[in-house]
């Protein structure tokens, strides 16, 4: 049985019958998107890895609660998103209580810049350029408000529909549109020289 040719719903069904190879295939499909969403949200590799691990473990151990009328990937993103938001909220509370100001969070955001881009078959100078452009975009994304950042990543990096993003972020459709619209305006302003 070739698991790579199976659809997501088929793999989920196999997982529900305790087929571990199906779970491994789902992991192979979604580990990068889930990890990179969390990584871009928290901008800390180790923490992102812990949160992504927790998201997959919860998703697999709670498959009985998964409603198959939604896409499995949306559900998985929702679990990952909620975990990450909860973590960030708790961390912000801690930061405020220790330092008395939420501004400490932004210095960390300023410091965190490079999500390294693996170059494929570009020439070295092109690879360097694309990495720099990549990292400049990453910095601009990192400076967005958390809600804008998550929404724009889900829309333009992950290619999710507005309806799916509303489901993942648990906000109304109109709110998603507002987040994305504002995030675009901010990014277009910051990256004007790159986008022309």
């Amino acid at each position: 049985m070739d698991y790579r040719e199976k659809s997501d719903p088929e793999l989920v069904e196999l997982c529900k019958r305790a087929d571990e190879r199906a779970a491994v295939e789902l992991l192979r499909r979604f580990e990068r998107p889930v990890f990179s969403l969390i990584y871009r949200m928290v901008r800390d590799r180790e923490l992102a890895e812990d949160l992504a691990q927790e998201a997959f473990v919860r998703a697999f151990n709670n498959l009985a609660r998964y409603d198959p009328s939604y896409k499995f990937s949306s559900w998985l993103f929702k679990v990952a998103y909620n975990l990450t938001i909860d973590h960030l909220r708790k961390k912000r509370l801690n930061t405020v209580s220790i330092h008395g100001s939420p501004s400490a969070v932004t210095t960390e955001l300023q410091a965190a810049t490079a999500i390294t881009v693996e170059s494929t078959e570009e020439r070295p100078d092109e690879a360097l350029q694309s990495r720099e452009i990549g990292s400049e975009i990453e910095v601009a994304i990192g400076e967005l408000r958390q809600e804008y950042r998550s929404a724009i990543i889900l829309r333009h990096v992950e290619g999710r529909s507005y309806e799916e993003i509303a489901e993942i972020m648990d906000v109304p459709l109109g709110t998603v549109k507002t987040y994305i619209h504002r995030a675009r305006k901010e990014l277009q302003g910051q990256l004007q020289h790159l986008l022309e």
Partner: peptide, 22 residues
């Protein structure tokens, strides 16, 4: 520009660590 951004990968032992807890 955004859709061309990379999907950074977690560490190679990621799947194994998840499956150990599932």
């Amino acid at each position: 520009a955004l859709s061309g951004l990379a999907h950074p990968a977690p560490s190679p032992r990621f799947a194994e660590q998840v499956m150990a807890r599932v």
